[in-house]
Structures are given as C-alpha cells and as structure tokens.
Design a protein around this nucleic acid. Sequence first.
DNA 1: TTGTACGCGTTATCAA
DNA 2: TTGATAACGCGTACAA
Lengths: 354, 354
Amino acid sequence: MNARRATIADVARQAGVAASTASVVFSGKTAVSEATRSRVLAAAAELGYAGPDPRAASLRLGRSGVVGVVIGDRLRAAFRDPVTTIMLDGLAEGVAERGSGLLLLRDDESGGAALPAAPADAFVLIGCSTRLRSDLEVLQRRGVPVVVVEGDAGEGIPRIRLDNHDAQAVIARHVRELGHRRVVVVALPVGGGHSRGWFDPQSVSQITVDVTRERLEGALEVFEDARVYAAGASFIDEGYSAGRAVLTAPGERPTAILAQSDVLAAGIIRAVHDAGLRVPEDVSVTGFDGVSVDGVAPLTLTTMVQPAAEKGRAAGIAVSAMLEGVAPPDILLTSVFRPGNTTGPVSSDVAPGA
Amino acid sequence: MNARRATIADVARQAGVAASTASVVFSGKTAVSEATRSRVLAAAAELGYAGPDPRAASLRLGRSGVVGVVIGDRLRAAFRDPVTTIMLDGLAEGVAERGSGLLLLRDDESGGAALPAAPADAFVLIGCSTRLRSDLEVLQRRGVPVVVVEGDAGEGIPRIRLDNHDAQAVIARHVRELGHRRVVVVALPVGGGHSRGWFDPQSVSQITVDVTRERLEGALEVFEDARVYAAGASFIDEGYSAGRAVLTAPGERPTAILAQSDVLAAGIIRAVHDAGLRVPEDVSVTGFDGVSVDGVAPLTLTTMVQPAAEKGRAAGIAVSAMLEGVAPPDILLTSVFRPGNTTGPVSSDVAPGA
DNA sequence: TTGTACGCGTTATCAA
DNA sequence: TTGATAACGCGTACAA
C-alpha cells in the first residue's frame, strides 16, 4: 500500500512524456509511436498503475456506462418474482449492446442509495411507486433519461407497457364462456396502505399500482359483480392464504378464482386442494404471467403469457435511444392466452347460485 | 433544455455566496446560517439545479457508493439460477447497510463493461473463472476491496466458501448406505473448454471450476469408480439431456445418479421417467442446493441444502468491513442434508452388477 | 507524433 | 459562519 495511488501523471513523468500522451496510450484515440507506447506501458507496470480511474474518466466524459434499475421496495422481492427476474434478464441484454452495466437500486427510503445520487447515465424504473415521483423530477431536471416499465411516471417519460386490461379480460371471458358466474378475483397488492383482504370493487380507480388496477378493470369488465380479494404480495404463500380466505368466506363459494399472477394461482390451487376440493372440477383457477411456477404440477395453469424478457429488452433499447438523443416511442406489448387444465366448465353437481 | 446544465458554481453566484458555501448547504457537513441556506436553496430551485453531480462528487470523495458484482458468463444464466438469485438477494441486504447499490457485471470478454473500468468501490466475485485473474490483479493494485464467493481468486483475497466437498460426500454416503454401487455423477460444467459429455474422473484435479471440482471430489471419495457426465450448464434441460445420455449409454444402467445441482436433478428425473423407469424404485436421484425447483413435484428431492442467502449476506458484510479498512476472515458455510423421496434402497428385482 | 493548457463539478482545508 | 484556494484524475482542443 503506497501512501498515494499512481496516477496517469505519475506514469507520464516516469516515462518522460506528457500526461496527455500517456492518456492517449490507454484510450487509443490517437496514434502513438510504438516507442513511446511501450515506454508508457513499462512505466505503468513499474508503478503499478491500474489504468484510468473510472470516476475521473466518467466526470470528464460525462457518462459512466451504468444504467440504474429501480426495483420495488425490496430487492429480495424482485429477485423472488420470476417475472421481474426474466425482465431484468432481457434488460441486461438490451443494455449490454451499449456496454453498460446494470446498477440495482431500491426505491426504499431508508438506507438505500438515494436515487438522485446514484452515478448512472440513465434509469429504468420498474412498476414505480408514487414515492418515486419527486426523485424522478430531479433526474429529469438533470437531463438523465428515464424509462418506466409497467407504471406511470408522469408526462414525458417513455413507457413500456403491457396490455394488462385486455389480457385479463380475455382470460375472464374464457372463464365466462365455461359457464362461470360466481367469480372472485385475487388481486396483487393494491397499494395505498391497504393490506391483504377483501377490496371494494367500487374503489378500483383509486388503486395506485397500475398493474393491479389495469388487470382488475379488465376482469370487472367481464364479471361486473365479481368480488375482489387483495393479496399482500405476489408469493405462493400469499396466494394460499388468499385462497383460504376466499373459500371459507360466508356466502356462496365461487366456482372460479381469477388470480392476477401465476404465483398467486399456485397458492390458491393448494388452498383449494386443502379444502378438499378439486381443480378444475370444483373450482377453476386462472393465473397471469406465463411463468413456470413450482407447486402447480401435475396441473398446467390456464394463464396469459406475457413477454417478460421482451419488456426488459425494449426498456434497454429505449434507454440506449435516449442516450443517443433520440426520443423513443411508448411501447405496448401484448400477452397471449395459454389454455391449461386448471379451468373447466361449471360442473352440474355443484349447487347453482340462488 | 438549457445549453448547459446548472452547476453548484452557478447556484452560488446566483445566491451571492461562494461555491464552497453552496456545497455545504447540500452536504450539511457544516453549519450554515438559515439566511444563506434559504438563499442558496432558492437559487437552486430557480436554476433547476438538481443537486451535486454524483460523478464529480465521487471523484472528489474517492468513492461512489457502488459495489460491483461479477457473475458468470451471462447475466441471464445467473438470473435463471435460483441459487445465484437467492445469493444476490442476501448480498443486496448485506451491502444495503452501507447504502450501496449493486452493479451487475459479467465476466464476459465481449460487450460487458470491463471490470477494471467499472466505477465501483468494491467487488464481489461469484464463482470466478480463471479469466478474471488478470483483472483482479489490476483491482488489487488499485486498492479496491475484492471478495470472492465460491471460488479462489488467489492469495490475499477473502473468500466465502461452502463445504462442497464434505456436503457431497455426505449425500453420497447416504446413497451408498442404501446399497447403491453403480453410480453416475452428473456434474456442473467443468470448464476448460470441455463441453457436455462423459468426463474422465482421473482428470478431476484439472477442473477449473471450483464448485464442480470440490463436489466431484466429495462424490469420488465415496464412490471411487463412479462415472462422471458433465452437463453444459445448470438448467433443467441440461439435466434432461444428461439423464438421457446416462441412461442410454452402453454398459450397465446406474442405480443412482448424483446431480451436482437440484436443477440438474429435476431434468434427470424427467429423463428417468421418459425412459419408463421409476424414481426412486429403479433409479435414485440426488440433488444439491436445496432450492425448490419446478418439475420435481410430487416428489421431494433428496438434497443438500446450502445457505445461499447467508453466502450473499456474508459477502456484503465482508465488503463493508474492507471498505472500513478491516480485513475480514475467510468464511466457511456448511450445508445440511435434507432427505426426500427420490432416493431409496437398491431394489432386488434389478439385476445386480456383474 | 507529442506537449500545453484547460476544464469537467465537486469538496476539504484553512484562513478570515 | 463564510470565502478563497487547491486539488480529485482525467481527456481533448489546439498548437508545435
């Protein structure tokens, strides 16, 4: 450990050249004679010079080659969620073309690196919360490109969106065509301080989480009087407890449960089985996302397959465009219906509704 | 869009104070009179100043609040691998205490941000390859803390390790006690340009991937004459193709297959079923990792559960310590045997080996 | 092909 | 409590 780290100036002095010459040797921007070149390299080796300091370089160049990714409250939740994981994968791919790395950030107030202080050239927000709005303004003022995936960050910010409303309506219609009329929607978290529990469908427009609201609106378009139970998170266990709550609630048991995610659906199916009922004979269950979830086998979930990797890739491409100074368009991706064997016709031996 | 972004100097001028005073207003390092404070803030608002530029700040301060994470060749593989995912989760938690973000880097030559040029205060390497060695030297020369998880990066670099050898021996012994003698190990990639296929156990010491070598050595300690088939990656599909290759190979069919990961085991089980055989009656299968893998249900994998999240957390803590100037000790984490129903005694109706 | 001069935007130090 | 000064380490016009 030297008292001070060697800088390019030290190397230049040692090699008997100007600092700018040494700089050029490392960047390769200008031709350098082989003689000086090797002298500089030798000096660098001798001094243990590790190449240009990225911090200084990024100040000088005005960019750091880093794209910030802001994910939900907790990284662990994001990692645990297969859809986010796949999306990040696509994003990494999209960003890699520029040679950029991905800086993972939480939008957590406490402890996490403050968003405006994060050294990134651009930011991708995933399902952003309202809490982010103020940070976003700061970034925009600074002129840092921002792209939002599945969320609304306000005007002027490009969005990568999914056809949540229509997709949920498609699968709801499938259920309706099977004859189901008593339906419960198990929703993703609705935000706004509301934790898990029954949710009044009248308040749907107040839901702050875009994904949840859009999918719910799609379902309610088909089943106007569906009841809605909001889960606390998109975990199998949450789906399980939601399923139990739904099946043990007073009143008539639903013949179909529409989950807003495959993960929730997996938990719901377990709850149905635990209640001594069969899927789909007694209760039909649908998912959303099209990811393979553990615990569903040997059943195959009837679900909407969303292009998760494509979402990330699109975001990466949008970011690249903005860094080039081009304004990217909003992008709307569509989901595809995938039939499975967790839905079936209303069986006649179930007592019809009053 | 102004021609130029406002800087702290602009704000200071507008407020009629020195730049250093304005700086202090934002950093809060020194007391400032309320009058000047509000003048500076007003000027900042007027000019649309977004706070100190993180690039300049990090040059000046000598740190960026970023911890680099180097994962395997492909980010997508890392994300897809449940163990890595869980580990990253733990790592995020470990570094969050310092308020650092996580910069994901590939050790891929092409495309990714070059390791030495990545603007991070410290680095965590996951299962590093030999290719990294030179980059590592550079980082160490620069004085950047480096921690290695499951890999050897050379002397002086703290390691977070798993008891791969012993753990694999434990589960192998379990299989041996069930009476199995004809055993095949399906290994993780062995590196060194060797792709999927049969691998000569004599060459075990030449395997460059530490995890693979250590687990293999553990297995060979118990089953000296086990045959070894190397998978191309830790995917279910790779396990499947390995399973097919193993079951259709000339010579006697093994009564047990030891997979080096749960994911591989899941694929192997499918291959066994496809071959018209039963698990565990005809073939016993073991995994490694203890993550829940899709496609195994309703069976429960007999496996070694490794503390994946703990690995990440330990790495985060080690990094924090190094940034404080404290040398952290090497850490060895241990795995726990978890019995399932994918292993059973050698059934008597299978013809014994010659 | 090489060197000079300057600025990128910030903050620590010290003196006032 | 405030201000002047000097780095932090680098890249790039431009001139030689």
